[in-house]
Simulated scan of single mutants.
Amino acid sequence: MPGSPLIDDSVAAPGERVVAVVVAWNRRELLGQCLDALAAQRRPANAIVVVDNASTDGSADLAAARDVVDEVIAMPRNTGGAGGFTAGIAVAVVRQHADLVWIMDDDTIPGPGCLESLLDVRALYPGRLALLASRADWKDGREHPMNTPRSRLGASSAERSRAASLGCRPIRSSSFVSVLIDAMAIRAEGLPVADYFLWNDDFEYTARLLRHRRGLYVPAARARHLTKAFGDSSADPGPRFYREVRNKIWLFTHSQALNGWERVVYGASTLRRWARTVRASRERATLGSGLWRGLVDGLTARPRRNDEVLADCPVAHEIQELENPR
């Protein structure tokens, strides 16, 4: 990135401990498919942590009954995807001693060679990678537009060539659907922002990890993302549009994920997307209300600390160790 030298540590040693983190909420059947897929990996994770966001459909019991699962974190309430991943990543690094954390939602079904492909690229790349993102397909095999990683604008020709030689491309951010993250980068940057609850937590966190570090999109690592509908974040969101707006404002004003020119570029892109979303919506009144409330709350408040948001959850010690070490 222009004006931002990338951190380039030596390549990590082979035999790294991989801990998979699955965040679950009221999708018991899909969680079962996800865990089956994790058990079927050609190179399985060394441990699996399931974070259950106070499901009412027996998801936590299903996870606890599976031999492949090493730890189930039962949250006392639904903390959203952001809170779930914050908790899971903290447990993976601190309690499970992960070198690499492989994260996904319960509707993510990794193919049998998914983790193996991510690790192969990591081993072959000349330098340390903070993040590797899988290709996410919808149920019909089309690449899911919701999960296509953003390319790294300004990547050097040498970076692009190194990535291309491995069938990859340099990226600036990604979704949380089958992403492998280096624990060293997690310890340096902290955790996702739990107060986002839903939407843009993945954009903020992965962009923060990759501001001064390298990440790759690895199309050979295939997973299916079994959302109900095929589409990107501009699909009609209804009341959730509030969090899209509030969290984007928080990202642009309170996060260190983006530099100055990126705020301009991504900010303009965001305004265009919001306009398209509202124009295409059948619930314009709902989106208009969400837009107004999101702007007000985004500009008048700021995200709370993770140890405040998750104070009543069984991860306080792990968050403290990662974000507020003594």
Rank of each mutant, 00 (worst) to 15 (best):
R284A: 07
D312W: 00
D307Q: 13
H225S: 05
A123N: 04
N247G: 07
A155R: 15
A235L: 11
R162D: 11
L31D: 09
S234T: 14
M146T: 07
L180F: 07
R276L: 11
V101D: 04
R305E: 09
R282H: 15
G81K: 05
N26Y: 01
E244A: 09
V21Q: 12
V94D: 04
R142K: 13
A285P: 12
P303M: 10
P192D: 03
S157E: 15
G231A: 13
R169G: 03
S10P: 13
A37H: 15
P149I: 00
Y266S: 02
A40W: 15
L310A: 05
G190W: 01
G83M: 06
S55Q: 14
R302D: 01
N306Q: 06
V72E: 06
R282C: 04
R272G: 12
I109V: 15
T253Q: 11
W25E: 03
Y266A: 02
H225P: 02
A285E: 12
R42P: 04
V21H: 12
D312T: 08
T79D: 01
R302P: 04
T270K: 05
W102E: 07
E116Q: 15
P112R: 07
D312M: 03
A257L: 02
E116G: 09
T253D: 14
P219K: 06
V296A: 12
T56V: 13
C168G: 13
I109P: 06
V93T: 10
T270N: 07
R222T: 10
A220T: 14
S178R: 02
E16Q: 14
D312F: 00
A60I: 04
A92M: 05
R17G: 11
K228H: 04
N78T: 07
R142Q: 13
D107Y: 08
A268F: 01
P145W: 10
G15M: 13
A37F: 07
L210N: 03
R304C: 09
A65Q: 15
V179P: 09
R122Y: 03
K139M: 11
A223V: 04
W292Q: 08
K248R: 14
G215R: 04
R208V: 00
E283L: 08
A280N: 14
L226P: 01
N324W: 00
V23W: 02
V69D: 11
A45P: 04
H225A: 02
L210P: 03
P149W: 01
A185W: 00
H225W: 11
N53F: 00
A87L: 03
V23N: 08
D140F: 03
E308G: 11
R28S: 08
D57A: 11
A39P: 07
R152G: 02
A158T: 14
L6M: 12
T300Q: 09
G290I: 05
S117L: 01
M104W: 13
E262M: 04
I48E: 05
Q256H: 08
G267R: 06
D57W: 03
A183F: 00
D312C: 08
A63F: 02
S233A: 13
D70I: 06
A54K: 07
R28D: 05
N259L: 01
E116H: 11
T86I: 04
P219I: 00
T206D: 05
S134G: 14
R169L: 00
L31E: 09
L209G: 03
A285R: 15
I89S: 05
L299N: 10
A47S: 12
M184P: 03
D236E: 13
D36A: 06
T286F: 06
R43M: 06
L191K: 10
D195L: 02
A54C: 12
D52S: 11
